[in-house]
Design a protein around this nucleic acid. Sequence first.
DNA 1: GCTTGACTTAAAGTGGACTTTAAGTTGTAT
DNA 2: ATACAACTTAAAGTCCACTTTAAGTCAAGC
Lengths: 144, 144
Amino acid sequence: MFYTIGEMAKKLNVAASTLRYYDKEGLLPFVERSGGGIRMFKDEDMEWLTIIECLKQTGMPIRDIKTFIDWCMAGDATIDQRLDLIDRQRKSVEQQLARMQNTLRVLEYKHWYYETAKKAGTCAVHDTLSKEQIPKQFRNWIHG
Amino acid sequence: MFYTIGEMAKKLNVAASTLRYYDKEGLLPFVERSGGGIRMFKDEDMEWLTIIECLKQTGMPIRDIKTFIDWCMAGDATIDQRLDLIDRQRKSVEQQLARMQNTLRVLEYKHWYYETAKKAGTCAVHDTLSKEQIPKQFRNWIHG
DNA sequence: GCTTGACTTAAAGTGGACTTTAAGTTGTAT
DNA sequence: ATACAACTTAAAGTCCACTTTAAGTCAAGC
């Protein structure tokens, strides 16, 4: 079962031009072509695109993803490099997660801040609150 | 206590040109100037830069951050808008966190995949594994 | 065989977030 | 007073990841 670039783009919910761009950048060396030059995507190509999407989600630039794909195409001689790259990306994602969770805490504080201000009709209410009126998780917090 | 743009940039670990860019884009309307036109950052400006950094971390574009800052400068009449914006960003970050956690699971799988391949000396080992040899968390997983 | 929509490429264009450059000013230290 | 590092602006440049355009080709239906 083969898919055209348009069908694959729809399945992946990306623009066909994006897939052409990835191909041009060397991210899709596994995609076959018809006699007439039309790209013929296979079901198993989805797996490749899933790992590409995964690496993209980690913030990895296109050329580094290409390096990884190239290593995959090169076979077993590159297993060590691939393991290293995956581990580095894993650590990076763990850090990003920690930062993102911190960001979420700030937004939760801001939510409380503005909800309280909304009820009072003014942000000035925050100058009048006693420590007990501030939710525990936000006390001893360094901010405005 | 005042800081020059260079001192503030060092404190924040960003380039001074970045702060000038933010100022030009209207993100720093609160920064005062000396008689000669030199920016004079105050300690309390750190709070502003912290929330800017927080919103930037959520993926919010510069102009939307400007909108938020403008609302802050406008006073109590914009509390509702600010609450809405914070809530939207909070939901966005929750989604990003969920996606990132999924990405991490994929990377953990890939780590196991390549570690196993490394021990065996070939990726082909994965064609020979019985279900029991695949860690529980990775069984019934849809991928290569 | 012709139309038509989806495909092809190369090249140019876009948008976002800076970064660098050039020319000039400020302010501190001697 | 003068040197000098750090500041100022406007404008141009860079990098990245696409997206669009232009000109043309492919392939399925009539």
